[in-house]
Simulated scan of single mutants.
Amino acid sequence: MRFLTWLLTTAIALATAAWLIDGIRFSGPSQGTAEIQEKLLPLILVSLILGVVTSFVKPVLTILSFPFVIITLGLFLLVINAAMLLLTGWLAEKLDIGFDVTGFWPALGGAVVITVTTWIVDSVIGPDERR
């Protein structure tokens, strides 16, 4: 259940970033039920890719860039998150999923939107119950 909650939260955050940030987009129709039908599977796949990239690559980059994180008082973590989004876009392009991030600045804006959206959705859903 926790995995599905995480996947839903990430998918909502990615969809919000694609909607708000020019330069982050899913290919396909842009209106109506055709848009939902054609973009739902790519959205889930990109959410999974982002989760894998964030789980395995981000900790390594964070450790390697720890001095920059300290010097910038944590702001360099935004750059790392943008790099994770760029890597996700590159992998999605190689896998022909239909997700595109056009550059660093859209990735940086997308990283901020994804972070804020995730905080909001997590606060609405509430803490996960652990047994």
Rank of each mutant, 00 (worst) to 15 (best):
L41N: 04
I12K: 06
T88Y: 08
W105L: 15
V79M: 11
K94L: 14
V101R: 11
V101P: 06
V57A: 13
A15G: 07
I36L: 14
R25E: 14
I71T: 02
D100Q: 14
G32M: 10
T54L: 03
M1T: 01
R2T: 03
I120G: 08
L108H: 06
P67M: 03
D96V: 01
L43I: 02
L48I: 07
G23C: 08
I44R: 06
I63G: 04
K94Y: 12
E93V: 01
L91F: 12
A82T: 00
P59V: 01
A92N: 02
V116K: 08
V57F: 15
P67C: 08
D100N: 14
I24F: 09
R25L: 10
L48D: 00
L108Q: 05
G32D: 03
A18Q: 06
T54K: 15
G126H: 10
L75R: 03
Q37A: 15
S30E: 11
F26K: 10
G103C: 09
E38D: 08
V52T: 04
V112K: 09
P59T: 02
A83F: 13
M1L: 11
I24Y: 03
I44Y: 07
G74M: 02
V60W: 10
T5Q: 13
V53M: 11
W119S: 10
T102E: 12
L95H: 02
K39H: 09
A82W: 04
V112F: 14
V112Y: 08
I71K: 09
F56P: 01
L40G: 04
L86M: 14
R25S: 14
I21F: 07
A92C: 06
I12N: 08
L77C: 06
T5S: 14
V79F: 13
P59Y: 09
I80L: 15
V57E: 05
L45D: 01
D128E: 10
T102N: 14
I12T: 04
G109K: 07
A34Y: 09
S27C: 01
D100C: 05
V53I: 13
T9V: 10
L20M: 13
K58R: 15
F99K: 06
L87V: 02
L7R: 05
G32V: 00
L7E: 05
A13C: 09
G32F: 10
A15D: 03
D22R: 14
A34R: 12
F3E: 03
F56V: 01
V69N: 14
W105I: 08
G28I: 00
V101C: 12
D128L: 11
E35M: 15
K58G: 02
E38A: 14
V57C: 04
E38V: 00
T115W: 15
W105D: 09
M84Y: 03
I12Y: 04
V52L: 15
R130K: 09
V57S: 08
R2D: 08
S123F: 12
L87E: 02
S30P: 00
L7W: 11
F104V: 02
